[in-house]
């Protein structure tokens, strides 16, 4: 249950090894969050994260197996995670994501399907179930990690970008559907973040860190913003970029 200041006590991370999600969890555990459920495919990575969170003050960090290429598993993963929380779940973060390699992926239908599944189909299916579980519970908050890559899809990363566009649109629609249910859904739209996902890549303008994204997510807990841009300036940058004519958009670097 959240307290009077909107501070959560229990959390589920879909993407239990995500740098961004774990930076967020660390912040909540430093306050009064005591339960963090980690769902993912890398047990060793999640066990290491669990040790870290327990040392920081969490009292229960259960691990749930989740493979985002297995679409049929989505609802079960959510149910397993709620069960593992043993009580009310205050916040669920959807952080599963796969950047892929655009140049190699774009000609490989199997890879296109995988990136799309991991970034869109599986998260959307988990969201459908999570919304149901939260509505039943009567309260809760869902944070969905989208990306500016989905705001206007570019030639240079359209496999990833389009899947994020799909997730972003789905999440906004669901956020509307949840109005009046006591459950909030917020879309987090970071720009380039220095994390495992972008290791070895050249940073884009406005590049930021998992810590900064995590701070913005903590801020979102006490705001009604449906969309949170990180850094905040990207909201205005994309306000412009969205409307740049396609011919000019095509020539933008990156």
């Amino acid at each position: 249950m959240n307290d009077a200041f909107g501070k959560p006590q229990s959390l589920i991370l879909l993407g239990g090894t995500s740098d961004i999600a774990l930076a967020f969890a660390e912040r909540l555990v430093a306050d009064r969050c005591r339960t963090v459920v980690l769902a993912g495919r890398d047990r060793t990575g999640m066990e290491a994260a669990a040790r870290h969170l327990l040392a920081d003050g969490a009292t229960s960090v259960p691990i749930v197996d989740a493979d985002a290429t297995d679409v049929a598993s989505a609802a079960q993963v959510v149910d397993d995670a709620f069960k593992a929380a043993e009580g009310d779940v205050d916040v669920l973060v959807v952080a599963v994501g796969l950047l892929g390699h655009q140049s190699a992926d774009e000609r490989d239908p199997g890879r296109v399907a995988e990136v799309t599944t991991v970034n869109y189909t599986w998260p959307a299916a988990t969201l459908a179930r999570a919304a149901e579980r939260f509505a039943e519970q009567g309260h809760g908050r869902i944070l969905v990690l989208s990306s500016v890559a989905g705001v206007r899809v570019r030639r240079a990363n359209y496999v990833y970008g389009a899947s994020k566009a799909g997730l972003d649109g789905y999440a906004l629609g669901l956020s509307e559907a949840l109005r009046g249910s006591g459950v909030a859904l917020q879309v987090i739209r970071p720009g380039f973040v220095h994390s495992k996902m972008t290791e070895g890549l050249d940073a884009a303008p406005f590049a930021t860190t998992p810590d900064v994204v995590a701070d913005a997510m903590v801020g979102a807990l006490t705001s009604n913003a449906q969309v949170v841009w990180v850094p905040g300036a990207l909201r205005f940058v994309f306000g412009v970029l969205r409307n740049v004519p396609q011919a000019a958009w095509r020539r933008l670097p990156g």
Partner: peptide, 10 residues
């Protein structure tokens, strides 16, 4: 602020 009937059960 009262929940309107909808698929998400408020």
């Amino acid at each position: 602020e009262t929940g309107a009937p909808g698929p998400f059960g408020s």
